[in-house]
Design a protein around this nucleic acid. Sequence first.
RNA 1: GGAGGCGUGGCCGAGUGGCUUAAGGCAGCGGCUUGCUAAGCCGUCGUAGGGGAAACUCUACCACAGGUUCAAAUCCUGUCGCCUCCGCCA
Length: 433
Amino acid sequence: MLDFRDVVERLDEVRAGLGRRGAVPEGFDRIVSLVAERRTAIIEGESRKRALNEASAAIGKLPKGSAEQLEAREKARALGDEARGFDARQKQIEAEIEGLLAHVPNVPAADVPDGASEHDNRELRRWGQRPAFDFAPRDHHDLGEHLGILDFERGSKLSGARFTVLWGAGARLERALINFMLDLHLNEHGYKEVYTPFMVKRAALFGTGQLPKFEPDVFRIGASEEREDDLFMIPTAEVPVTNLHGDEILEGASLPRKYVAYTPCFRAEAGSHGRDTRGLIRQHQFDKIELVHLEAPEASEGGHERLTAAAEQVLQRLGLHYRVMLLCSGDMGFGAKKTYDLEVWLPGQNAYREISSCSNYGDFQARRANLRYRPAGDVKAKPRLVHTLNGSALAVGRTLVAILEQYQQADGSIVVPEALRPYMGGLEKITRA
RNA sequence: GGAGGCGUGGCCGAGUGGCUUAAGGCAGCGGCUUGCUAAGCCGUCGUAGGGGAAACUCUACCACAGGUUCAAAUCCUGUCGCCUCCGCCA
């Protein structure tokens, strides 16, 4: 969420930034008068409260039940009523401001290119070579079924469309990828591993910006006899991990906090009917390794580059050809200031597909989740909001897809990337069972 | 699932309607002192929102949300969390 004081102070600038992503809400400029009204309500309310406090102290010193005390009580009661009136007014205005801002996305960073859709994203670089085949490459769906490691029919029998069962070497490959990625980030990139709940409260989803705007995309466990409040299945580890230090004040010296988490992710995929219905690309449940940074504001840009590099390293170790895209203003997620997508080459689709998204959120999520730090070496300094960053490193299911498709052989078997063999009991090739 | 208890500042802990702008201690921070030695002394020591050029000042916050009252950490209601015992359970 944007800071309403900042919005008022830099109204034209913020409006222009939001305009770049086509997200200036109706009546946006009304915020200026709302903030002014809020201030008036505070000043008036506080003056009544002060008078009331003084009056109450005086009443205590008057003889109990005396005529003058009764009279003073009447006057104090009136003050209290007035104070409550201004308080209510203040709350109402603040709710209006929040209502206005809760649906407003972040302002894009200056170096984010203008654009309306993914077609306007800018390719920054490519790594590796497209694998060349002297046969027609198959897609992972066919390969997986042929090998008996992907079972789409039984997934849908159990749970419906967009669920898949993995068998044998497929299941083991999934697990190997999880462990390989975690170990890489732990041992070589300095991340701390964290294991979190997979169901979270509404407040956590608000903190990272999925709510209130994107509730249809999230699976919700409604109230029941067991619980009166709602829980939501996490759509990404970003939600529990970023919110870990919500309402805390961290020591500046402890920044950056770099966390890596494995979690399954659950997405309703509302509005994506008919898209990527074949194969593993778009599932209701998938595994992901997520990197999250909490950084001092001045360090977040550098942190974003390092986080992205860590994600790229996974693809490089696995020998998977990919490219890096800088997303344009219109294609970024709700809370992001700047986003790099890693797109892996999928021979079966003859296309690059997103396998990781690495974003700098600035203080947008931190304000919602109340994530703060005290600048190092200055005990008098006011707490400041951290910057939050996150990125997938990587989406496990799509990595498995990329391995099947890039490492496929003419006979339909799959060569296991060398980096994964220690995690696969030395297995060098997946063949038909 | 049953029964009971408890939630006060970074920590410990006092506080059952006005003398609490939350006592006292510990830790932290700043300084003084250092021959009296795992020390002493003085000061400082929360968060947020207002006002003010500033010094400073006001308002709110004792798990959270409501309520009673001129006045609530204190009384009432609801919620959440934690603890103990019993039962059940991977």
